[in-house]
């Protein structure tokens, strides 16, 4: 084991160097704490910094995760092979039932169209969809978010609704050139204006970082029942109206809980809805000519 050299220069140089080495963690910890504080009070360009990072990372993740996705999909294929017969029977029954619904829907659609024509209803703005694969789900235990490899180049804009096959899963909170971040409806910071489908009661659906979400700002005695569907109200003009979000699973004195329709923990593809919202709907200032 070589001993430390004890020349004169070393004796003087070492303590300073040592102090530097000892102080670095403290300085860095303080710096990190200051960053958290600055982020909290909003003096840090957090969004721009994040977009810069995700724009670089998302394409890399898209490429690197491909083999794993293929692998899991083939595993899934083998697993479902065993349940194929039972699934087939179930699907046939479901298909027969859905065929009846399809007939009913066609009838309602034509009826709806002719009634709308009679009443001269202004049509909802046309929606455009962008489908993207989920490349990352960063945030872990704290934040419920997804990373998509589609950004402003693909007409994904901040505030757009994000759907899975079954209903709303979240909203775009950051949109870079080629990547974007989705805040899931279950996140602590998520607030979605909703309406209960059968009673038309308006409320705000708030995430809690848990599996279930809570309805807030409910009117007194709103008479909600378990099993009611919760859909977006379209208030504020940011999200399209009537997108299903979840179903009420418990009604208690002080809290009404809602379960999301889609399984948010295993999303692999999502659709981003672009709504060309009228500016005046969002700002509330309607310019009369």
């Amino acid at each position: 084991m070589p001993l430390r050299r004890t020349s004169k220069t070393d004796i003087h140089a070492v303590p300073l160097k040592m102090i530097g080495a000892r102080a670095t963690p403290f300085v860095l910890a303080l710096l990190a704490l200051a960053m958290v504080a600055f982020h909290r009070i909003g003096v840090m360009p957090a969004e721009q910094l994040r977009i810069a990072v995700t724009d670089v990372v998302a394409p890399v993740l898209e490429t690197t995760s491909q083999p794993f996705v293929t692998l899991t999909e083939s595993f899934e294929g083998v697993r479902t092979l065993r349940a194929l017969k039972a699934e087939n029977i179930r699907l046939k029954e479901e298909n027969a039932r859905l065929a009846q619904w399809y007939e009913a829907a066609l009838k309602f659609q034509s009826e709806n169209q002719s009634l709308r024509g009679l009443l001269n209803v202004k049509a909802d703005p046309a929606l455009a969809y962008v489908t993207a694969r989920v490349v990352s789900d960063p945030g872990g235990a704290f934040v419920k978010s997804l990373l998509l490899p589609a950004g402003m180049n693909d007409d994904v804009t901040k505030g757009s609704a994000v759907l899975s096959g079954r209903g709303l899963v979240g909203r775009i909170t950051e949109a870079g050139k080629s990547s974007s971040r989705v805040l899931l409806v279950t996140d602590l910071n998520s607030r979605i204006p909703v309406v209960i489908q059968n009673t038309r009661t308006r409320a705000i659906l708030a995430g809690r970082n848990k599996e279930l979400m809570r309805l807030e700002r409910l009117p007194v005695d709103s008479g909600l029942v378990v099993g009611s569907r919760v859909v977006t109200s379209g208030d504020g003009g940011l999200l399209p109206a009537d997108i299903p979000v979840g179903t009420i699973v418990s009604v208690e004195q002080d809290s009404v809980l809602v379960r999301p329709l889609s399984d948010l923990s295993s999303l692999s593809y999502v659709q981003v809805v672009n709504m060309d919202a009228d500016e005046s709907l969002i700002s509330g200032h309607i310019n009369t000519p």
Partner: peptide
């Protein structure tokens, strides 16, 4: 920056744990 939480949170934890 990759996650969506407060900026500096993981930096703080890592530096403190390491120290």
């Amino acid at each position: 920056l990759l996650y969506a939480g407060p900026i500096g949170l993981h930096a703080l934890t890592l530096v403190v744990a390491q120290g």
